[in-house]
Design a binder for these strands. Structure first.
Lengths: 249, 249
DNA sequence: CGCGCGTTTGACATGACTCAAATGCTGTGG
DNA sequence: CCACAGCATTTGAGTCATGTCAAACGCGCG
């Protein structure tokens, strides 16, 4: 019943493909998911020049906190991240999880500080886009502006679905919705829609969905009993995706 | 104990000032809160030409639904609106309330349909910005692009605070936070920070905060007993703003 | 290999919901 | 302008989903 190995980080495969830190956007396997989509070749080359590609960060690495000045946007190249915001009394809310090709820091644009805290959930790397430069080259690249607006807009729409989830859904529906959202994102990235590793902890999931850790744990157990999923540690396998969809509410 | 009159719509004063539908951005009293902020005069004039100013809509008027094609962004000129999104089973979440100078529809940019439903809460009017034209003139107006990005980004940050509220706060904290957010927005618009009319129903508030109507009603009563506020129908008066702030969590 | 944290499971507590009913307000039509 | 219908709000009583507390377990990191 024990899982063979849960060691493999989530996006190791991608990490391998991308292990050369200097790979240009044109050759990056994330191309179709990433910012450069739709840019003309000249523009792409120009964008390329302002991107700083990070080395591999290890689990727990802090990309930025809400006390640091806003300087750059980040795109996940490999691995995954979570962002949190905190209330004055220290309570935290996990606002989002980020996978390869997704933007981190969009909520800080034109603020002096970042508005959230971003932390690596596993071994991860990013492309850093200094915002002043992005803005500069953006003035001559309408396509880039459009991409930025589109990204922001989609993130906004996503957040609003999360508000529906947080405000109106039951614990069962929350978890089902969350798992399907992961499934979809893995699929978009060329991975299995049914078998994947959860890079985040149970308590991250619980927090993100507005539930207690114990509730998540119990739900995983029950979903397993009911044949919806099979889960061992961080390894998840979706057994009945249709039933899961019905559960979403 | 009955209120003299609750008839006065929330932004009647503004509505009067702005009753001329053709008032240009330059002369609009919302200027400093609105999109044109920071535009140069030539640009402003150009922006002006693409804006369609609506007549007065009455309470309940539907600006758009999530089944209509995305065509325009809207800025509230007078009155107020709410937006909702709905789950497949019909449950709805009130995602946001909008006051003069605020943008509606940002979550639909570059989608084929609107992503939410927008409805007037009282007698209201808007400026309509056809998005294709906005994009067109935007290509030559970096300041406009910056404004758009800033707006989107701030809305995103706001939504994330709402996620914190929905996921982590108690009923008391939710209502206190909501009332203070209203207070702040009224103040920014030149109205009293302590005395104003709630244009939305108790159930809109409840829904928005992820609570039941009954809970909101009870909280209003209790807050009143405790001397935090005084409320009669839609007329709210904040009595102890400091204590309210402490309650926010 | 062992410690510590993350996870699971159980028992119990409770904040907020649901249901129900009374009251009040608003908009409409006569 | 008033009266009535219907919806919004308030208040009370009882329930329930989910949280909290506690303890055992076991995986994974060092």
């Amino acid at each position: 019943m024990t899982q063979a190995t849960n060691v493999t980080p989530l996006f190791n495969d991608l990490a391998k493909i991308e292990r050369d830190h200097t790979v240009a956007c044109q050759e990056c396997s994330l191309y179709r998911l990433c910012l450069p989509l739709g840019l003309h070749n000249n523009d792409l080359v120009r964008l390329d020049t302002i991107i700083k590609r990070s080395q591999n960060y290890k689990r727990g690495h802090i990309l930025f906190t809400d006390e640091q000045p806003f300087k750059s946007l980040f795109v996940v190249r490999s691995g995954s991240f979570k962002t949190t915001i905190s209330a004055s009394d220290g309570r935290e809310q996990v606002t989002s999880f980020y996978f390869p090709g997704e933007f981190i820091g969009l909520d800080a644009i034109h603020q002096s500080e970042y508005q959230s805290n971003a932390k690596a959930l596993e071994s991860s790397s990013v492309c850093e886009l200094p915002y002043d430069m992005l803005q500069e080259i953006g003035e001559e690249m309408p396509q880039l502006q459009i991409q930025m607006l589109t990204r922001l807009s989609k993130e906004l729409a996503g957040d609003r679905n999360l508000m529906l989830l947080l405000g109106k859904k039951t614990a069962d529906e929350k978890l089902a919705t969350f798992l399907l959202s992961l499934s979809k994102r893995f699929q978009e990235r060329g991975f299995s829609a049914t078998d994947f590793q959860l890079s985040m902890s149970r308590s991250d999931i619980a927090n993100h969905l507005g539930l207690a850790v114990e509730t998540i744990s119990r739900l995983f157990s029950r979903f397993q009993e009911e044949g919806l999923i099979s889960i061992a540690g961080k390894a998840l396998s979706v057994q009945n995706i249709e039933k899961l969809k019905q559960l979403c509410g």
